[in-house]
Design a protein around this nucleic acid. Sequence first.
DNA 1: GTGAAAGCGCTAACAA
DNA 2: TTGTTAGCGCTTTCAC
Lengths: 348, 348
Amino acid sequence: MSKPKRGEPRKTRVPTIQDVARLAKVAPATVSNVLNGTRPVAEIRRERVLAAVKSLGYRPNALAASLRRKETRTIGVVVPEITNPFFAALVHRIEELAGESDYQILLASSNEDPKLEAARIRTLLDRRIDGLIVAPSRDEVEAVSHPIGALPPTVLVDRGFGLAGFDTIAADNIDGAYRGCKHLLELGHRDIAMIVMDAKLANFADRIAGYRRALEEAGAAKRARVVTGGLDVESCRAAVERELRRPNRPTAIFAASYAATLGAIRAMRAVGLELPQDISLIGIDDSDWMAVLHPYISAVAQPVEEMATEAWRLLLQRLAGGNAKSARIRLHCTLHVRESTRAIERDR
Amino acid sequence: MSKPKRGEPRKTRVPTIQDVARLAKVAPATVSNVLNGTRPVAEIRRERVLAAVKSLGYRPNALAASLRRKETRTIGVVVPEITNPFFAALVHRIEELAGESDYQILLASSNEDPKLEAARIRTLLDRRIDGLIVAPSRDEVEAVSHPIGALPPTVLVDRGFGLAGFDTIAADNIDGAYRGCKHLLELGHRDIAMIVMDAKLANFADRIAGYRRALEEAGAAKRARVVTGGLDVESCRAAVERELRRPNRPTAIFAASYAATLGAIRAMRAVGLELPQDISLIGIDDSDWMAVLHPYISAVAQPVEEMATEAWRLLLQRLAGGNAKSARIRLHCTLHVRESTRAIERDR
DNA sequence: GTGAAAGCGCTAACAA
DNA sequence: TTGTTAGCGCTTTCAC
């Protein structure tokens, strides 16, 4: 009964179901049945088994069980970038839900690279994951549809909305951007630059659309200016800085993503513009620090928690054999009006 | 050759090594040898195998291979909280390194709960992970040492430093805190309150020690005030707020963790103190937003990247059978002097 | 250089 | 209710 400690040469082979069976004087199948509740087992044996399990410190080899059962209770989760608070929150919630349903998460990050994404997904599939939750790095998701052939039940979050054959979930980006832009318009802004990372990504296209729609309604359609920043904070900063140095600089910046928001603030500093006196800013994607330092940053928050919850719900449904047609879920954003957006000065 | 698309009823059973062998007219073993380079295979067969693999879209079942080989090329990673930027960065880097060495990451989060942590580790072990990287939720790590008995090669990061039988890595918390505190002292501060989450955790004890040492050197040992905040931002905020409302409030706050920093800033807002005119602040743990909004927040940054890199290196070493005695690695923190720390007004 | 056969640890099907 | 048997798909002896 002396439990071997780390460091000691581990002499004792890790016990198998056979060892338990032998010790309990029952068949391996019976051990299995006791442990999994697969079939009723007489109380006497049942107790002998449990005792043997305990005394040997037996734990079933999940690998062997998975191989046999053809299910791993493992879900692959692929995100572009775990250090982005949005994806961190997404993963966090998914991991939590998975734990509750006795699933494990195999995490992979694609670094926004479709090739890497495809490769990572492939190795996840090799491990026979039961399902997959992906926040694709691109919309085409060539990565996602190409490998092996068939994928296990898969839900796409944030990007790739509406892709045939997948349950997809995304924020209502059009509406979110619309409301964010409208907020600025109501404050009197007309020269609003939207900063996107890549206008061709559907998310950004949608956000641009929402932004344009708000502008049109305000009769300012012609004032639309969309600036393509690039995929990281630094390139966004540079793009915004260029924009701010132009003769008729915008009075407000609408940063269409987290990195764009960070970049925009940096750019303002670089150019020497004070937030919100000299210029207004609203971002898409919220983070806790935005309500900590003045000026608190106004933001359109995506419903991350709900997105994760829905993703998990849909996935479980598929895993349970649900054969409904692909779900497409749009979830509403929340507008947080804080201090970085301010009514425009009259003298402009 | 028609690759089955998702949505179509997948009629084709996923091909096994047997199928490949049959098609290539060789033994399964030969397929294995070709794919793994285990033994030389005649060029003729070799090509037949490769062709068969391609035409069937065969991918080896990693589960079966793992069961047989008794190695999964999977590493468990357990962190208290993935949404904390420090741990997010840690996981990010580990995941990156793992990918490079063709390992997968099984992620689990303990929510700072030792019981949950133990449970999660146990299920990771059931999956026969080859190794484990844990940022323990507590120091005792009863969780870590208790389960099954033996653990696979395990490295402890951030907490649990020096625990027998593990490779452990942590920031040099004493020195980091010492330097942070010294910075404040050099600015003339004498009434510096340190906010910790739990004084009993070794990390915080160390940070307190560093803080005290700096104070002693400055002959201000008696002015030490350590405030225990609690485990989340909100309770830290409340604790700091209480401190700030006391008659002789501190002139500077030294927040000993990320959550404490967030809480401290909130508290200052609540009390109406302006940073850095009315009070100075330095935190432990850095984040990108701290250098974005004024005042930029001074911080003692832990070397996350290096911690992850070292953790991975040590783990690989163990996995390779390295039998060196447990490593204990302390890595240096970096002091980022920014704008939230300012020389104290003379009239105090 | 190659194939046949055994077996990793488990569960499901089949008997008893 | 229980035990026996046959694999899950792979790798690894062991023969040839």
